[in-house]
Every structure is written in structure tokens, then in C-alpha cells.
Design a protein around this nucleic acid. Sequence first.
DNA 1: CTGAAAGCGCTTACAG
DNA 2: CTGAAAGCGCTTACAG
Lengths: 354, 354
Amino acid sequence: MPPSRPTLKDVALRAGVSITTVSVVLNGKRQGVRVPEATRQRVQKAAAELGYRPNEMARGLRRRSSQAIGFLSDEVTTTPFAVAMLAAAQTEAARNGFLLITVNIGRSPNDADMERALDSLVQHQVSSLVVAHMFHQEVEPLPGLPETTIFLNCRATSGSFRSIIPSETAAAYDATRELLAHGHTRIAYLGDDTGLVASSLRLAGYRQALAEAGIRPDPRLRLGVLPRVSGGVHGGELLDLPDDVRPTGVFCFNDQVAMGFYRAARQRGLSVPHDISVIGFDDQEFIASELDPPLTTMRLPHAEMGKLAIQTLLGHDTSSASWQPNGTGEVARLECPLVRRASVTAVRPVRLPA
Amino acid sequence: MPPSRPTLKDVALRAGVSITTVSVVLNGKRQGVRVPEATRQRVQKAAAELGYRPNEMARGLRRRSSQAIGFLSDEVTTTPFAVAMLAAAQTEAARNGFLLITVNIGRSPNDADMERALDSLVQHQVSSLVVAHMFHQEVEPLPGLPETTIFLNCRATSGSFRSIIPSETAAAYDATRELLAHGHTRIAYLGDDTGLVASSLRLAGYRQALAEAGIRPDPRLRLGVLPRVSGGVHGGELLDLPDDVRPTGVFCFNDQVAMGFYRAARQRGLSVPHDISVIGFDDQEFIASELDPPLTTMRLPHAEMGKLAIQTLLGHDTSSASWQPNGTGEVARLECPLVRRASVTAVRPVRLPA
DNA sequence: CTGAAAGCGCTTACAG
DNA sequence: CTGAAAGCGCTTACAG
């Protein structure tokens, strides 16, 4: 860094006032008492000429809190997936004069890891924290977390914290309705079988949509698979069902599963969407839009979530997020928009037996 | 944060010594002069009992530098691609007691953006900086950057900075050799046509390998396309070349292009690798390993690069990176390992005319 | 309206 | 071997 930056003292000297005045003017403080416009101008001019920037360490020391926000995450920064949360949070923080300090706590953080990460953040006097997770999950807040901590892409299971998560059930409902709207009635759910929170939440939405449409869910049309490409390939067995039960539309747990399912269809000589409509989840970059045909899917609102986290932390008006009670805390569920592409089409008339 | 954390004074009081002594003991300083073991023990015990953590703001103010490293990046945190650099840098920083402050400067940062980002970092007294870019590129360093700044995934075009980049030419050479080793002689390069630095560097490696094998590069076998899936699909026209010039192996600029090329081959009823061998570049997560067949590709050493950046900044021994001169600075080119999967196979005997 | 002074929690000459 | 004191650059009662 440039050897020595100008300080308040330098500005004061140049403007011919005390450092108190400089501080007051530059911070727009001292409410009620007016500093004469002339003085104000002089100070501002001097500061500008010197290129003065406050030393945040000194400021932080004095105020006992820094203009920094701690962003504690599991592998969110490692796996190229939910990074949009991080990016959006960083951008929103910057817009408000805050810096983001990111701390990665590994894939399956134990309490000690968390503790250590928290420690270093506390040492830096971060004013507040966001705890982010890669995959939507439920977490038991670590003791000692400040009440203002925001849980991002995870729901705190105790305490009076605010959590921000995707609106999974509503999204699954919408996805299923999209298939319904195209005339499909035999709709499969290619879910996750690893116990992810999102899985059961989405299942509920799927069922609700079916129920409202007066369709009895067929258990043969529900498969739990690994939430990866291989799982989707495996899910291809849905296609081997007898004609009268075989689904005409499949709602996949995520885009990777959908990618695998495409392959399974292709291997059977079937075409998406003509023989089978497919809808995914995540709108994962480099995948959903690049599949052939491009995949209709539910977009996970990662960016919006990251932004909301910072706005909430900073005390902005976030009432539009319609917070709902979550124990003694609150939770905001953000909408996952339907991204229509080319993998869903109107159901084909049933083939008559030959 | 917990209302008030213990300070040096609290520890001193409890240990019955001065704060000077506490500071000295806890920092392991005062070289030469020995603090008696008994005193040392007492201090350490008191600190532990109180759960003392130094206030980094105070420390930073005093020392005129904080235990934080600024990570300035373009969209590295936005696009889920080179995040491994960020993650590895963060982890390595943490291992050394440093925090990473990430600042995103947008897709095409102008000088003002950079200036502003830099400013906020300077205000926080970051001890040093890494300037990271999403795609390997050449950058003109902003004036006023500390000499210790590390350029990550980009090469500084002036100044005495250290830059860390992938070894593009060597990797392309290796990729081409892999095809050569499988008996291919008609090897195409499906390059990028948007002027990326990596493109010309890789072209050089491709040419060198061919030259060493005594093969005259056929200009019809070199195509420049968009470095995306669509570009790869477009590259399928290589497959329409007459039998005697049509390539039997294709080196693709990146995995996305390879993904598109797979599709082009499939559309023509051709199979990878039986009819055409394909090698990619990047080893992009969710793509390379998930393609059918899984793609042989060159892995971009993002994690190693991020780690090296921090180690270099911290003055660790990085001589194994074999730095080379770069103007008045230095550059480390990191090896891109070949990841063998299933898209390259021995060339088929030439089909005889019917 | 404005400034002198205290103090945030440290580190580091310096003196004893 | 150990401690008193100065000072890093600010903010904020408080006094004038």
C-alpha cells in the first residue's frame, strides 16, 4: 500500500480546523447542530484534495465494530453452484459500503471448525454474520451466534434468527402444474433418495398439485435416486413401465438428474419432449440451457437470496419478502421462477393398442 | 457479538503482570530476551481461562496492517467456474491465520471500479492483494497497486509483479500428444475465435506437437468457434469433410465446445470415441465427467493456483513453482494434468472405398 | 458553532 | 527480566 495515507489530522491542518470538525463533517454527524456551510465546504475540499479515506481499523476500534460482514459458508465457495449467493451478497454489501469477509468451513463442519471460523471473524469485529449453506438444509445454530445472524439457504432450527430459503414446495407445485397444464396426467417424480430437505418439500408440492387436479399419485411413478446424472440415468426405468402406467411427464429433482434422464431416454430411442416431457430444478448454469433440447426448469433464486441476506442484515426494508414465523425467528421463502425452454410439450394422444 | 470480550488488560490483571508482558508472551516476540517459563505459563493460563482473542482492529491499527488479504476479482465469484481458485485461496489464508476479503469488480471493470474496490481494501489495511480473473488474460496493472500484489489467472503486462497462470501451451501440447499416441494423424483443433489469450497459447502447443511428429498442420482442420456448446455444435462441420481429410481426433478449446461437438457427432450418427476421438480442456465440473462417454480433458489447476497465490503472498517457499521472468516481474505457469476418461481411443483403420 | 481530551485495544521502543 | 508510556487514527462526550 502507498506508504502513508493522509489522516484526519492532515485534513484538519489543511482546512484549518480541528480534527473533531473534520470527523463530524465527513461523517455527516452531529445531528441538530449545524456546521456552517463554509466550514463544511472547506473540510470537504481539503479531504478531496488529499484523497483522504478513513482508516477503517481505527474507526472500527473506536466504534467497536467494523464495516465488514462475515460470510460463513460450507462449501458454497468451493462447489460452483450456489456461488451466485456469495456474489450477490458481496455486491449488495459493497453498495452499502460494507466488505464481505468470506470464511469457508469445509464440507461437513463440526462445531470446532465453526468455532474457529467464528473466532477469527469476531477478532475482526465483523458487525454481523451470514451463515450460508451450499444445499438447502436445516441447521442447529451454534451457541454464541449474534441474534442478527442470517441463515442463508438453510433454516435455523432454534433461536430467534432469520432464515432465507427457496420456496421449494411452491416451486414443485408450479413445476407439476406446468406438466398438468400441458395435458399430462401420468407425471412421475424422480426424487432424491439421500434425505435432502428439499426432497420432501418438493414431494409435498408435487402431491398437492396432483391432488388439486384430482389425480391419485401412482407410487410406481415415484422413484428416489442419487441427485446426479447417474441417478437420472437410473431413473430411466420409469420408461420401461407398461404403456398404461408409463409417465408422459417427469419432474426431476434437479437438472443433473434431468440430464441423466435425457440420456436414458435417448438410449431407449425415445425423444424429449415428444415421447416424454421433462422438467428440472435449479436452472444450473452450463447445464439446463445447454441440454438438447434446452431444459425447462425451476430457477433457484440464489442471487436474490444473497442480496436479501445483506439487506436484512443492514436493516433495510425487506417486508416484500413476506417473512413467516419460524419458531421464535422468521423465515423468508423466495420464489423459484419457472424457466420455460423446450423440454415440455403437450401430451401425445394415447397410443391405441395395435 | 458477545458484548465485551476480554482485553489484554483483563489478562494482565488476572496473571498479575503488565499488559506489555502479556503481549510479548502471546506474540512469542521479544527475540533474544527470554521471559521466564513461570511467567509465560501464568500468562498463557490466564489468557486461556478468559478465552482471550486479540482484537485485530487494534492490532491492525498499531501495526499499520491487518491480517487480511484482499481478493479482488472480476466475475470469478459470480460464474461458477474458477471458484476453486477462491476457495483454495481462502483455505490457505485461513491455515496461516489470515482472512480473505473478497471484492467483486464486475464483468468488465473499468479503472474507476478497480479504484473504488482498491480503496475499500486499503481502508481496511489489507496487507496484500491478489487480483484474480475468471479467464486467463493479460492485464495492465492499475497504478498504485502494491508491488507484492499477485496476479492470479492473469498475467501482468508491466511492473514487477508475480503472475500465476496455467501452462496453456504445454497442456495443449500434451493433449495433442495424447491423440498422437493413439495413432491419430488427422487431428483437428477446434479453437476459440473470440481472441482469448488461451486460444493462441494452445494453438502453439498443438502445432508444436504436430511438428515434432512430422505432421504438417492441415488448415482445413483448424476451426475457430464460440467457446461454448453452440460453438462445438458448429464445429461438427469438421465431420462433413471428405473421407481423406476428415479428422479422426479433435482437440477442443474447452469442455463446453466438446459437449457441443459430441452432439454434432451424434446428430450425424457418429459415435465418440469409435468414429471420432475427442479431448477437451478445463475438466469443468458437472460437464467433463458427466458427458457420455466421459470426456478426456486437461484439468485447469485452479485450486493449486489459488493456493500458490497465497503462499507466495505470505512469503513461503514457492520455488517448486519454477518462476520464470515476465518483464521485470515473474510468472509461474502451473501444469494442467491430463485427465484420461473415455473419449479418446486408438484410431480406426482407414475405411477402404467401397 | 468548535476544539481539547479521553479512550478504543493493541505494540514497541525505552527505561529501569 | 519487566513495566510505564507513547501512539496507531479515529469518535464522541464535554466544555467553552
